[in-house]
């Protein structure tokens, strides 16, 4: 019975945390494989399953009060919390997709402040609890497309970054915004493992940052962000490849020139500054025409990738007159 319920298309207008009991979506795969595994694999099954998907260990678990948002994507099955929290690219916590979940417990997200620097009227520091109360938190369901050609559908919680930017009082000379992530080797064992220029830096053009879809994000599935998903605060830019959506932000800089960004600097031919999802511009190592939906069964994973990840109606006008092949 439980198995059938989770496979139904979920009514997306409702807060996701209201419909699916957590115990069910956490264990979706366990239920599905449970029936099939009853026979021969009963002995090895559970051990291997636990290797592939270790029990959800780190959850901030604090319930957030949220309101629905008209900006949510509708009609697509949500990726399970299990997959959203156990298939992560967060190199500060390790390069393997399962490392962030394993190492998340080392991260401390309280106390936490975000400092504002650069072209602003006055430098400021926001406490995370102040940020959480700045505006009503909204449930925003977005497609999430990784540059590695996989995708998810994630029910984020947050409010438009533009609301936060208004509180920062940037000067007219501020043309770009830069996000810097936490880089503390005592909490983040991956810093030594990956040969990148830390701290992780990402950036947006000011009009991109001010777009209502750009989300200052504090949670998912109605609760505070698990550490491996960028707790306690991150950005989510749903029409760009995932690496643009900086995690665990400690510093925001308003700058007059295009800021240096980590992956762009590491391999400029592979990761552009804009990195808008674009099926017509291949990554040097693979085609971006299609993507693998996480959580789908192996022969049904592949689906076409949409221009601007399907958010073209809202964001295409930001790029009128720009050559998106050159400015990939």
């Amino acid at each position: 019975m439980l198995i059938r319920k989770t496979n139904d298309i979920q009514p997306l207008e409702i807060t996701p945390s209201e419909i699916t009991p957590k115990s069910v979506y956490l264990n979706r795969r366990a239920f599905m494989s449970g029936a099939a595994a009853a026979g021969t694999a009963a002995l090895v099954g559970p051990r291997i399953a636990s290797l592939l998907a270790p029990a959800a260990s780190v959850h901030a678990d604090t319930k957030l009060t949220t309101v629905p948002s008209p900006l949510s994507t509708t009609g697509e099955q949500l990726t399970s919390l299990q997959d959203i929290t156990h298939y992560n690219n967060f190199y500060e916590l390790g390069v393997d997709k399962g490392d962030p979940a394993r190492n998340a417990g080392r991260m401390k997200t309280r106390p936490w402040t975000v400092s504002i620097e650069g072209q602003v009227k006055a430098k400021k520091t926001f406490d995370i609890d102040t940020l959480l109360k700045l505006r009503p938190l909204e449930d925003r369901i977005y497609r999430f497309r990784c540059v590695e050609a996989w995708s998810m559908v994630i029910p984020w919680v947050g409010y438009s970054l533009s609301e936060f930017i208004k509180e920062c009082d940037p000067l007219p000379s501020a043309k770009y915004i830069q996000f810097l992530s936490l880089a503390d080797p005592n909490q983040m064992p991956g810093l030594r493992e990956a040969n990148l220029d830390w701290p992780y830096s990402e950036g947006l053009r000011m009009d991109e940052a001010m777009h209502p879809l750009t989300l200052l994000t504090f949670g998912l599935y109605g609760e505070t962000l698990p550490n491996q998903d960028g707790a306690p605060v991150r950005v989510v830019i749903p029409w760009k490849y995932g690496f643009k959506s900086a995690k665990s932000i400690v510093k925001v800089r308003f700058v007059d020139k295009q800021p240096h960004t980590t992956w762009n600097e590491m391999a400029p031919n592979e990761y552009g500054f804009y990195s808008n999802v674009n099926p017509d511009v291949d990554h040097p190592r693979w085609s971006q025409k299609t993507e693998r939906r996480i959580g789908a069964s192996i022969f049904k994973q592949r689906q076409p990738t949409l221009m601007f990840n399907g958010y073209g109606d809202q964001v295409a006008k930001l790029y009128t007159g720009m050559d998106l092949r050159k400015n990939f």
């Binding site: 795969r29 099939a36 595994a37 694999a41 399953a49 592939l52 998907a53 156990h86 997709k97 994973q301």
Partner: peptide, 20 residues
């Protein structure tokens, strides 16, 4: 054999294509 069993059970993790 491990791969075939897990493929049939749809139990190859979040991204089965990449896992294989």
């Amino acid at each position: 054999a491990w791969l075939v069993v897990h493929l049939l059970q749809n139990n190859l993790g979040p991204d089965p294509t990449a896992a294989v």
